[in-house]
Write a protein that binds this DNA or RNA. Structure first.
Lengths: 206, 206, 206, 206
DNA sequence: AAATAAACGAGACGGTACGTCAGGTCTTGAA
DNA sequence: TTCAAGACCTGACGTACCGTCTCGTTTATTT
């Protein structure tokens, strides 16, 4: 997560258990208190750890919460469900399920908000959360192209642009429905969304 | 903004100028400091107002920022640009321009994050920000239906569902690109997005 | 109490009832809350009066409390009980009874404390509280001298010095016992005190 | 002053220097500002200490000022001056000199006033100020009894009563003259006072 | 009767201090 | 060198009172 240095042999070694305990405590605090009422002192107490231990590993609340939330997205997978529509529906439902959890709800938008003024935080979010999702989109598109369900782009720049567009449309719609509109992204909604998205991507532009 | 009650004739009336000064000061502080470093004491000082005056009118930082940001969306309009595509591109560009402003960037996601644990705040955001945008979407769709560019829905429930879907897709994509992906929603992107969206909405479902 | 000017004929006259209500409310608040938690807003409310009315008559908390407490000492009297000892015991008991009341306890020492840094307040206290008590002492001494129980001083300066000394010894002992030592100045104590005092004043200095 | 507990071995120990700095700053603030304008934030700043450090050690303004003023009385001593009259005059002059200092003037009566409604504060004042003075009185009396200048009481209860009476008369007279009457307790006054007091205590009751 | 003028209630206003809380750092002794 | 504990400095919080002000209203006296 941090301190990648394999050196540092002398002195008492850092407790490996502490990291996991702290992240778990962070998520628990997010569920109970939400972002704004979460305090690092409380997280340390919950984790059975001193505040100094926590600060030795993370720079502050933002970085800690990014790491704690990022782990939630580890479970995102893209099994081959046989068709592009089924793949999209599957992954969107997974994504919606994660976003519906209170620790994600509370924490994710908050760190995104903070990241608007902090480039390092933005990079950290991108690296540990956004790109992970983005990779799924690209992988799904490649699979659909192998299946012949989506056309192959000739221009690599055009390919990148389209990939980004798809990603923003998918993630944006789910996030907006869940967090802004405050509705559930259930199966019915996901089917409707997928239908419009795929029609838009595959219909002849005429 | 608050206390619409026409009662309360007695006592010194509240200064109307103070409201405007406070909201303007809030936006200025958002630009300079961002959400997390904005303090109500500082806003009061900037507005030339006592902290108590501020607390007499707003319950806290969240409510104040919602009102301050909401005013930014007052300029959203939907002039008839002749075609559905032109209308969509026009309004999305306007929306993107507002979101690109630092006072919106800083404040909007933060209050949305807070609103995940505060129903009253959620209602305030919906009332003063979200529904205003939603109305534009509905109006645009109605205009397109009058033009014959979009089909009329028979079922009103189906119509509402579709309206919500379109809204979440439009707002979500722009917000996600601007705030999460961290890219600009420029004309080229808007054209590409509009193409996919409208194809998805108008192409025969096969 | 204030505004001694007999002029000011035009306009609505000040309510005489308000003064009395305010002073009574002040004493009630002293009893319930004590000096430090007494607020002028609360006094105004108790008196059924606006804060402005209160401030039109008194400069602040100190002045108000001096006037409110001063009225308590109106009941001090010096009836002729036949002997100096009886006179002293009588007036000391009266004085102790007033000091034992919570409104006096709370307010008196507080304004004295404030007066150490405010000459105007000191003058006000002297004028409306201290001199009233002092006059009793002088009157009692004169009576005792008429009776032949105390010697007549030849030197008027010496007479003044002795008068002040007696006053400080009497008032000081009662106040100290009541407020600092925190004991009751009951009949037994008063008898003991009077005995020592009068012996000290009348015994041959030899 | 507080936390006499020898426990609490873990964690960073409290700074001993901070205590002294805070009490000195409190006295300085009393001199400059007086009781009512003394603020704990200002004291903390003067002491070069955070407000929280101050609140960690004292419950509030009252307790702090009691401790700050109590230290002034540390210098009270009762050297053997050869006779009871000389002993009394000496200690009364010392006491008057302390009371004449602005930090004592401002603070002492104020905390006494507060203590009328706060038993814990009353106990604190008694423990750290009043009993210290009382002990001097008792010691002086015992010395005079050894010298044969004062009679030995047979009844211990009577002895206690007389001790209290003497103490209230001495302290009360000095305090009243200094703080209420607003005059200086100079040598001349002290001589006059001592004469009356000792005559009262030693003359045959006739 | 009308005009004038001050006092009145209500309550908003700019301030100041309150006592608390969280952030992030530092200091101790033990592991 | 890390750890738990907890004291430390900093700075914002939201509240309470202060004493002033601005309203519309009431109650006198003066025309």
């Amino acid at each position: 997560m941090q301190s990648r240095t394999p050196a540092a042999r002398t002195g008492r070694p850092r407790s490996a258990a502490a990291d996991a305990a702290i992240l778990a405590a962070t998520r628990a605090a997010l569920v109970e208190l939400g972002w704004s009422k979460l305090t690092l002192g409380d997280v340390a107490t919950r984790a059975g750890v001193a505040k100094t231990t926590l600060y030795r590993r993370w720079a502050g609340k933002n970085e800690l919460v990014v790491d704690a939330v990022a782990e939630l997205f580890d479970e995102l997978e893209l099994p081959d469900r046989g068709s592009l529509a089924a793949d999209v529906e599957g992954v969107v439902l997974q994504f919606a399920a994660i976003l519906a959890r209170p620790e994600a709800k509370s924490g994710l938008m908050a760190v995104v908000a903070e990241s608007t003024r902090d480039a390092a935080l933005r990079a950290r979010i991108r690296g540990s959360i956004v790109e992970r999702q983005m990779r799924l989109v690209l992988e799904g598109r490649a699979r659909a192209q192998r299946r012949g369900e989506l056309a192959l782009e000739g221009d690599p720049a055009e390919a990148a642009r389209t990939g980004e567009l798809i990603f923003d449309m998918v993630a944006g719609a789910v996030v907006h429905r869940t967090l802004v509109s405050g509705n559930q992204a259930d199966e019915e909604w996901v089917r409707g969304f997928t239908r419009v998205l795929l029609l838009g991507l595959t219909a002849p532009s005429a």
